[in-house]
Amino acid sequence: MALVQYSDSEDTDPEPQPPRKKPRQENANEKLPPLPAAFRDLYATNTRRSVHDDPSLHGGRKRVIPHVEGNWPTHIYLEWIPNRSELKVLEGILSKCNSRLGDEKLRMHSLLYSDLGVQLPLHISLSRPVVLRTEQKDSFLELLRHRVTHSGIQRFNVVPTSLYWVSNYERTRWFLVLRVERPEKDTLNRLLRISNESLAVFGQPPLYAPASTAAQRESGAMREKHPSRPTVEEQDYSDCFHISLAWSLTEPSAEGKTRTMDVDLGAVRQIEIPFDCVKAKIGNVVSSLPLK
């Protein structure tokens, strides 16, 4: 049998290859960069699971503003996303409040996390839930943006002061809230005034101000032609501003309210909550209006 001939190159040993680099192992303690603020605005609305108002899908809550073609539910607010240490402090406060309501026949739902365990942003409201028509929403946002931009209001901080219970306007839900101190330069009242006056131009009721200001709402069409005309009295609503931490379909008893309001806030009072923009949610779209 003939021998198989190999080339000289096949007789030699193969060139030594450089050692393969081991795949980089992620350090479990390595901190990931925070998500940009605009990312949360893109996903600020939960997936709709029903075209009808089904309270069983969201803890028994009933929709205050029904879905109507051509109507745009609108909310103006300041957003706070607590960091991990702040979340831990808030969780401790809710745990203490729950234990003090142990003998009450109510269920307190946390607003710190969603049903899937995802952290939720908290907020201070600058408007009640209102409705704009399709032909109004762009003009309203333009007016609000103009007034915030030219207000001269700068970024600011607030500090929590006490716990309190409040209800919504329909008294269908009760909220355990953190009240906050009046910030420097009366910033919250000034922003509330801008929100109230901007909404009044489009015939919408103010937040905290008496709802009986029918004259303002009836003359909304006239004010659309004169948006710079002031409409809301400069009152002090510092005691009204708050951050909701939890909600319940059942009103706590007077004794239960007292027991929870007496919880020692401890480290909560050391938190400085920063705000650098006003948020306007119109339908499913969230717009950020930056402060100076």
Rank of each mutant, 00 (worst) to 15 (best):
V4H: 10
V4I: 14
E10G: 01
D11P: 00
T12M: 11
P14I: 12
R20Q: 15
K21I: 11
K21A: 10
N27L: 12
A28P: 02
L32A: 13
P33M: 04
A37V: 12
F39N: 02
R40E: 12
R40I: 05
R40M: 11
A44W: 02
R49L: 14
V51L: 12
V51Q: 07
P55C: 08
L57K: 14
L57G: 04
K62P: 00
K62T: 12
H67Y: 11
G70Y: 12
G70L: 08
E79Y: 01
P82F: 06
R84P: 00
S85T: 13
L87Y: 03
V89S: 05
L90D: 02
S95T: 15
R100Y: 07
G102R: 08
K105M: 07
K105I: 07
L106I: 06
L106Q: 06
S110Y: 04
L112K: 08
L112R: 06
L112Q: 08
L112F: 05
D115P: 01
L116F: 09
L116E: 15
L120R: 15
L120G: 00
P121V: 03
L122F: 03
L126P: 05
R133S: 10
T134W: 03
T134P: 00
T134V: 06
L141Y: 10
E142F: 05
L144P: 04
R147K: 15
V148R: 06
S151F: 04
G152S: 06
I153T: 07
F156H: 03
S162H: 13
S162K: 13
S162T: 05
L163C: 01
N168T: 04
Y169D: 13
Y169G: 03
Y169T: 14
Y169P: 00
R171N: 12
R173H: 01
F175C: 01
V177T: 13
R179P: 00
E181G: 02
P183L: 08
E184V: 08
R190M: 07
L191G: 06
L191F: 06
I194E: 05
E197R: 03
A200T: 09
A200C: 09
G203M: 07
G220H: 14
A221K: 11
M222S: 09
R223M: 13
K225M: 14
K225F: 12
H226G: 00
E233D: 11
F241D: 04
S248F: 06
S248I: 03
S248W: 04
L249M: 10
E251Q: 15
P252M: 13
E255Y: 02
G256C: 01
K257R: 15
T258V: 08
R259N: 02
M261S: 08
D264W: 00
L265Y: 07
G266V: 07
R269K: 15
E272H: 14
I273G: 01
P274W: 06
V278M: 02
K279S: 11
A280G: 02
K281A: 10
V285S: 07
S288T: 11
